[in-house]
Amino acid sequence: MAPIDSPPPAVTPDTKDWTWVLDQPCPECGLHAGALDVADVPRLVRENATAWRAVLLADGAAERPAEGVWSPLEYACHVRDVFRFFDKRLRLMLDEDDPLFENWDQDATAVAERYDLANPVVVLGELTGAAEWIAADFEAVPAGAWQRTGRRSDGAAFTVETFARYFVHDPVHHLHDVTGATV
């Protein structure tokens, strides 16, 4: 762990456009997000949140496995923030017509929020709570709202349905990053 007064070591930024997971299975984590029934998304989110307990309470959760790679704790902080950030985007899609999503630099957030110094027990509670919020919000999507749209600044466009599938790949994939578990 880096000293509190110095920034955490840099990680290799992920600059991929992961929207391809809507068209084909992920060769790493095994999830075929595009083939999911959106009704399964809340269950997958809750199962994912439950699985982070063992990760966060394990010895060495704050240790990076390699230079330039987040620790399991840092991945968990990111997943917590994905749940929060994507829940805001979901609400925008349901409340506004074709909103343009604000940009989010996940790597800058990890440094600014000092993911590397987070308390694993606190993160577990926050991650679990954020997972429940977004799972419940997906369960509450009205039948006629699944085709509402939203856009990223890079031009990627989603319906609530494709957004749900795209979103759930992220926490599933990051659990795979730290445990090797596949779907």
Rank of each mutant, 00 (worst) to 15 (best):
D105H: 10
E67Y: 00
A181I: 13
C29N: 04
V79I: 10
A164M: 06
E47K: 08
R165H: 07
D59V: 05
R46H: 08
T12F: 01
E126W: 00
K16D: 13
A157G: 05
R84T: 14
A108V: 00
L124E: 09
G30P: 11
R89H: 06
P8S: 09
A131D: 04
P13C: 08
D98N: 14
Q147G: 04
R152V: 09
E96M: 09
D87G: 09
F158Y: 08
A10D: 12
E126M: 13
V122P: 04
W104N: 15
A181H: 11
D177K: 07
G34Y: 07
L73R: 07
R80K: 08
L100S: 04
A51G: 11
A145S: 13
F158K: 08
A58Y: 12
F101C: 10
E139R: 10
V11P: 00
R114Y: 00
Y166G: 13
E132T: 12
L117K: 03
F83A: 01
I4Q: 11
E47H: 11
V41A: 11
A118I: 00
D37H: 05
Q24R: 15
E63I: 11
A110Q: 05
Q106I: 05
V168R: 05
E74Y: 00
V123G: 05
D98I: 07
V45C: 02
L22K: 04
W52D: 01
P142E: 13
F85T: 15
P142Q: 09
D95H: 08
P120Y: 03
A61D: 01
F158H: 06
D154V: 02
V21A: 06
T128H: 02
W52T: 03
R91F: 00
F86S: 10
L94R: 14
T109N: 12
W104F: 10
P9I: 00
T149W: 00
H78C: 03
K88N: 10
D5N: 15
D5E: 15
H173T: 03
F167G: 02
L92S: 12
V69E: 10
E132V: 07
T19P: 02
C77N: 11
E67H: 03
D170V: 00
A76G: 14
L56N: 09
V178Q: 05
A110M: 07
Y75Q: 04
A66Q: 11
A49I: 02
V38S: 13
V79G: 08
D177Y: 06
L127G: 07
D95W: 03
V123L: 03
T15I: 14
W52C: 04
W52A: 01
P8K: 01
